[in-house]
């Protein structure tokens, strides 16, 4: 916004004006327009999702739409009462929680090792971590399903949590790697000279310093699991998570149920991602402090 207001008066007041060419000005407008367009791209659907969720079931299918939600909880009530939905919601929470715990349990030590120790194949290991995301899930779905049926892991929340952990683990490793790297090794060394073992130095010095970041990483893992639909749809039948359940019932469900379901899915993810955005930026190497 400041670009436009600053640009306009400048050529008139300055005695020897730097030429503000039309090209430069139009570049600014293009920039602003792109920003607005991209924001709208994300925000407008979310807004309609909100409006429809807070409309009564009858209002949802009418046209034209009002831009102000009428704050009718009818759709949400219908959603809560729908057969199997609460069970799916419960499954989603269980799977996401297990994913969260497991990805931190395995990811944080890997991140610590990457940031603190020199070992052979360290760079290869880092690339391999990312490479786990190189195989599309549909490619893996069939062998996974066969394997799960053989081992009896099919249609269990734990089995699904394992798959989701695999998806979340690379991010957990990379986020914790950047967290640990941000803590000077001298802090740990100072703790060792002051009577700490490697373990107590970690719990007394490193852990308090990275706890917020670990939390963020955990929440991110939760969101990955919460949003995942493909593996959930393929690997579960009875114990469906919310995403898989909604996908299954998408065809037959009434419109207001879809809106309410979408809303319930989007809101926690949005809130969580907003809460941990600082750490996601740091993972991607964007200076943000």
């Amino acid at each position: 916004m400041t670009h436009a207001s600053m640009a306009a008066p400048a050529p008139k007041t300055e005695p020897n004006p730097t030429p503000v060419t039309p090209v430069r000005n139009s570049g600014r407008y293009l920039y602003a327009a792109t920003v607005i367009l991209l924001c709208a791209w994300v925000l407008v659907p979310l807004y309609f999702l909100l409006v429809n969720t807070l409309s009564s079931p009858e209002q949802v299918s009418t046209f034209p739409k009002s831009f102000i939600p009428e704050f009718d909880l009818g759709s949400l009530q219908f959603f809560a009462g729908f057969q199997g939905i609460l069970n799916a919601l419960k499954n989603s929470i269980i799977v996401a929680s297990m994913t969260m715990v497991m990805s931190i349990l395995f990811g944080a030590p890997a991140g610590y090792a990457l940031s603190r120790f020199e070992f052979r194949g360290k760079e290869t290991f880092r690339v391999l971590i990312l490479l786990t995301r190189a195989f599309p899930l549909p490619l893996l779905a069939l062998p996974l399903a066969v394997l799960f049926i053989r081992t009896g892991l099919d249609d269990t929340t734990f089995g699904l949590a394992l798959v989701h952990t695999t998806l979340a683990l690379p991010f957990a490793v990379l986020i914790t790697f950047s967290l640990f790297s941000g803590i000077p090794v001298e802090l740990e060394e100072a703790a060792w000279t002051l009577g700490c073992t490697r373990f107590t130095a970690f719990t007394k010095v490193v852990l308090p310093l990275i706890l917020p970041g670990i939390t963020a990483s955990a929440i991110f893992a939760f969101v990955i699991s919460w949003n995942e639909v493909f593996a959930a749809a393929v690997l579960t039948i009875e114990n469906r998570t919310l995403t898989a359940f909604l996908l299954q019932t998408l065809g037959e469900a009434p419109l207001h149920l879809k809106f309410a379901g979408g809303f319930i899915l989007v809101v926690p993810a949005l809130i969580f991602i907003f809460a941990v955005r600082k750490y996601l930026f740091s993972m991607w190497g964007i200076a943000n402090r």
Partner: peptide
């Protein structure tokens, strides 16, 4: 012996004061 068992204390170049 581990650093903690040597009877030493150390002052580091970048101070290493615990920020928390």
């Amino acid at each position: 012996l581990a650093p903690k068992d040597r009877g030493i204390a150390m002052v580091f170049q970048n101070y290493a004061v615990f920020p928390h």
